[in-house]
Amino acid sequence: MNTMEMMKSMSVGDMPMDMGAMQECMESMNACSMAATMCAGADMGMGMEMAKCAAMCSNMADMADATMRMMMRPAGMEPDVMKAMMMACMTMGKACAAECRMHADTDEMCRYCAMACDDMVMKCEAMMATMPA
C-alpha cells in the first residue's frame, strides 16, 4: 500500500482534499526534512561560520516533519490549523533556502537542501490551491 492508498482509506473529516496533491506535498516535505537534517548535521562540523545555517536547517527539518505528520492524520485535520501550519512551513522553507543558497556555490549539501526546500514550498502552494478558502 502506497501513501496515497493509505490516505484514501482514512476519513478526511470535513475537509475535502486532493489526495494526489497531498501525497506529492508529503513526499516533498519528507525529502525536505531529510535534506535539511543532513545539511544541519554537516554544518555542525563547520564551526561558527555555519552555525546559523545549521540552526535554520534544524528548524526546517522539524517544521517539515511536524507538518507532514499532521497530514498523515486527516481525520483530525482542522482547515485553519492546517493552512497556518503550511504557511509557517513555507515561510521557513523560503528562509532556509535563502540561507543555504548563500553557500550553494561551495557546498553541495546546501545546494541540495535549498532545492528540496524550494520543491517543498512549490508543492505546498499547489496543495493550498486545492484547499477550500
Binding site: Q23, E24, E27, S28, N30, A31, S33, M34, A35, M38, C39, E108, M109, Y112, C113, M115, A116, D119
Partner: peptide, 15 residues
C-alpha cells in the same frame, strides 16, 4: 551521487 541526493530521491519517489 551524494548521500543527500539519494535521500531526497528516495523520500520523494513521485518526482
Amino acid at each position: 551521487v551524494l548521500p543527500i541526493q539519494r535521500a531526497i530521491a528516495t523520500a520523494n519517489p513521485s518526482a
